[in-house]
């Protein structure tokens, strides 16, 4: 899983001052879906991104694989700016960076057999001979634990977990280096989720894959990722090693998020230290001045409305954007 000496030393992805803006449908306003985000994804790691609905997670994921164009800032793959490549070089480059979404039904054509679906990206990329492509597709199906005979089936003959495996197989055929996984287990039944998460871990170990794992499920992210970023209204508010963020969160939003997570624990093991945030996430069209979390932050001060907090590395590898993150009394425990 670790980088070998022949591989480039640069992080597999570097994101600098990324901004993505959208026009609202009536074209009268601009949504700052992602507004100034900086991070690196290290080779072979799983980088988690959590945050509430509309905070910009999917938008980042789509930008990472160049499914959408940043409004400003840069995304480097292995230190290279893919947009500076020639068209054909860009096309072959993109194969290394895949994305998988939540809903396997939307990703699979109901009229195509499973094998045809898995073959499709290989055919579009015109990889090898027909026989070679079929061999690769079958191999990918086998990798995700689907028996050969599934190739002849249609999506409606598969369960949700099996369909998600097909989608994963499809992404694997092009032998990517990095896969952005956007809520990939959210639509799956509880008893199936564990299986699919195990599959992701196995594939990473065997193929040296890097993942960007987007989810709003804290349990999933803390299980699968080495590092995690917490997003709020288009920005990162905290980033660090998962265990550290989970056990010693620095940002008031992270602290609230962790305490709001319902835990399946008996009453004797639950703590009373719950912070129930008031209000809801403001609109990304017109975010609050200064710190964007201040309208819901239990620790907000006048300074928070005046000045946006810096994005700083408070302890090694642990980043936070809060004026007062070094005050020890934030945490309820």
């Amino acid at each position: 899983m670790t980088a070998t000496s022949t591989e480039p030393r640069e992080p597999i992805v570097s994101v600098r001052d990324l901004q993505v803006r959208f026009q609202t449908t009536d074209r009268r306003a601009t949504v700052k879906a992602v507004d100034g985000v900086n991070f690196d994804v290290r080779r072979g790691e799983t980088f988690g991104i959590i945050g509430e609905s509309g905070s910009g997670k999917t938008t980042i994921g789509r930008a990472l694989v160049f499914l959408l164009k940043p409004s400003a800032g840069a995304i480097l793959h292995d230190g290279v700016d893919p947009t500076a490549l020639s068209r054909s070089a860009f096309r072959s480059h993109r194969r290394d960076y895949q994305i998988i979404f939540q809903d396997p039904n939307a990703a699979l054509n109901p009229r195509m057999t499973i094998l045809a679906s898995v073959l499709e990206p290989l055919e579009l990329a015109r990889v090898g001979s027909k026989a070679e492509r079929e061999r690769q597709a079958r191999e990918a199906l086998e990798r995700v634990g689907l028996p050969q005979e599934f190739g002849a089936r249609y999506p409606h003959q598969l369960s949700g977990g099996q369909k998600q495996r097909v989608v994963i197989a499809r992404a694997l055929t092009l032998r990517p280096k990095l896969i952005v996984c956007d809520e990939v287990v959210a639509a799956l039944d509880m008893s199936i989720r564990g299986d699919v998460l195990n599959l992701f871990a196995d594939l990473q170990r065997d193929l040296g894959l890097t993942y960007v794992f987007i989810t709003h499920d804290l349990a999933v992210v803390s299980h699968i990722s080495e590092r995690v970023a917490v997003m709020y209204l288009g920005q990162f508010v905290e980033l660090g090693p998962t265990e550290e963020v989970a056990e010693r969160p620095l940002h008031p939003y992270t602290i609230a998020l962790l305490s709001a997570e319902p835990r399946p624990l008996p009453s004797s093991m639950r703590t009373d230290a719950r912070i129930v945030l008031q209000g809801e996430v403001p609109s990304p069209i017109d975010p609050p001045s200064g710190c964007r979390f201040r309208t819901r932050c239990p620790h907000a001060q006048p300074l928070c409305a005046e000045r946006a907090p810096d994005w700083r590395e408070l302890t090694p590898d642990h980043w936070v954007a809060c004026h007062f993150a070094d005050r020890p009394n934030f945490s309820p425990n």
Binding site: I192, R193, N198, A201, D217, V220, H223, I224, E243
Partner: peptide, 16 residues
């Protein structure tokens, strides 16, 4: 037992 956060990180999740 199959719930993720009840397992040590990166351990295999018991599944049904």
């Amino acid at each position: 037992r199959s719930l993720p956060h009840l397992c040590p990180r990166h351990g295999r999740l018991p599944s049904i």
